[in-house]
């Protein structure tokens, strides 16, 4: 009688490319990190600490891509080693950008920013999103392949899924970039509206500092957040109702 062990399988710690299918995502993730660094330095200028933090963050995120999902914490809910590297890397990248762009007199008044600078800030935002997305997608698809190969003996073809990901992801990214640019430019409309309503308010310090950007985000996203909360609830109810109707139909079909 063969020995069967149903104890949890532990993933060994290994360094290397887990699946060649996701190499492109790893490369894109690393490239986005480099672009992010270049755009940040273009906007802010050079500072050693910020630059080093950014660089280490990008390297750590790349290193995380080359690790197996080795468990280091006792709970399954906590991140695995590769995800932890990505988290730390992202944190360092944010810290680097925070240091590089802190108290920058040229950038602190959004009313003085040109459209080109807004465009650069949009590129920065989108590059950061892409940096997170590609790095995470690489880990996610590696896990999908892991799961597929662990549960089957066949080679799982992730090609069509990745193709769809690039296609759908790129389309959505265009929308995200547009939305980001609109959000950043929206503060000009806000300032104009404030000026029309009350010139004193229109010339206030708040509307000529980064606070106006935060106010813009709050004006857009707080109502959107509330809407989404209700939207999720509505969708859940709708799904339940549909399922109940479907079941009722099936039961009726059985008894007729």
């Amino acid at each position: 009688m063969a020995e069967y062990d149903f104890l949890e399988e532990k993933v060994p710690l290994k360094i290397g490319i887990r699946y060649p299918e996701t190499t492109m995502l790893k490369v894109l993730g690393f490239l986005m990190g480099l672009v992010l660094m270049v755009v940040t330095l273009l906007i802010t200028g050079f500072s050693l600490t910020g630059f080093l933090l950014l660089l280490i963050g990008i390297i750590l995120a790349l290193f995380g891509q080359l690790l197996t999902p080795y468990t280091i914490f006792p709970s399954e809910k906590l991140p695995k080693l590769n995800a932890l590297f990505l988290l730390i890397g992202t944190g360092l990248v944010v810290a680097g950008i925070a240091i590089l762009g802190a108290n920058n007199a040229e950038l602190s008044d959004p009313s003085q920013l040109s459209f080109g600078q807004y465009l650069l800030l949009t590129v920065l935002g989108i590059t950061f999103v892409l940096f997170i997305e590609y790095n995470h997608a690489s880990l996610r698809f590696d896990d999908v392949l892991d799961s597929a190969t662990r549960h089957s003996q066949e080679v799982f073809d992730v090609g069509p899924v990745l193709k769809n990901y690039y296609k759908a992801g790129s389309t959505l990214m265009v929308f995200i970039a547009g939305a980001t640019l609109l959000l950043l430019v929206f503060n000009s409309i806000l300032r104009w509206a404030a000026l029309s309503a009350n010139p004193q308010f229109g010339h206030s310090v708040v509307l000529h500092s980064v606070y106006v950007m935060a106010i813009t985000l709050a004006i857009v996203f707080v109502p959107l957040g509330i809407f989404l909360l209700y939207y999720f609830e509505y969708m859940e109810e709708k799904l339940k109702k549909e399922e109940e109707e479907k079941r009722a139909k099936e039961t009726a079909a059985i008894y007729t």
Binding site: I97, G101, G125, I176, T180, A214
Partner: peptide
């Protein structure tokens, strides 16, 4: 971004929320 008066972080958060 508000604490450090850093518009880069605010534009990043705008992109993340979008």
């Amino acid at each position: 971004g508000l604490a450090l008066r850093n518009p880069l972080l605010l534009s990043m958060s705008a992109a993340l929320l979008a």
